[in-house]
């Protein structure tokens, strides 16, 4: 009971601590100094690829080009462009590769739906094989093994295993 109370107190303290960290003040600034725009850009940049260091996002990269692209993304956002507009701007220049999440279009259908098609195909194959096997297995050990059955019954009845 005491332990439970202690845990509850701890959870409450944690909740209080987290809510103390990021209350949004009236002018849209969080305590950490991140404006709503900063947060939006951070989220957007995490979906965009830096083309110089290809396995990093725009948000993570220190490359010079990433700096320029972040500046460009920010100025577009300040000009009132939506996230989709900004992505379209970058795709027009660098291609779909700039997006971490590839768009669904005929050339990426295999990428998006291939795994599900494989799963369905594998499942169907599995089902067919199981059905065929179930049909091909005919009961073999019906009443043929009467001697073994007799021995088993004796053993179950607690008699000595004479046959052994």
């Amino acid at each position: 009971m005491i332990a439970r109370a202690a845990i509850a107190a701890l959870l409450l303290a944690c909740a209080a601590a987290t809510s103390a960290v990021d209350p949004v003040s009236p002018n849209g600034e969080t305590a950490a100094g991140m404006s709503a725009l900063d947060l939006r850009l951070k989220r957007l940049e995490a979906e965009l690829r830096c083309l110089v260091c290809q396995n990093q996002t725009l948000a993570d990269s220190n490359a010079d080009l990433a700096d320029d692209l972040r500046r460009e993304v920010r100025s577009l956002a300040l000009a009132g462009k939506s996230d989709d507009d900004i992505k379209a701007y970058l795709v027009a220049r660098y291609g779909d590769f700039v997006l971490y999440k590839p768009p669904v279009k005929p050339i990426t259908w295999m990428l998006w739906f291939g795994p599900f098609a494989l799963l369905a195909g594998g499942g169907a194959l599995w089902w067919v094989v199981l059905r065929r096997r179930a049909r091909s297995i005919t009961p073999t050990a019906t009443k043929a093994d009467t001697a073994g059955e007799l021995r088993a019954r004796k053993l179950l009845n607690g008699e000595d295993d004479v046959a052994a």
Binding site: L51, V52, L65, D68, L69, E72, R93, Y94, G95
Partner: peptide, 13 residues
């Protein structure tokens, strides 16, 4: 100088 035209041309290397 600021690489703006480079961005328009999709220059990355």
């Amino acid at each position: 100088r600021d690489g703006r035209v480079g961005i328009d041309y999709g220059v990355y290397g």
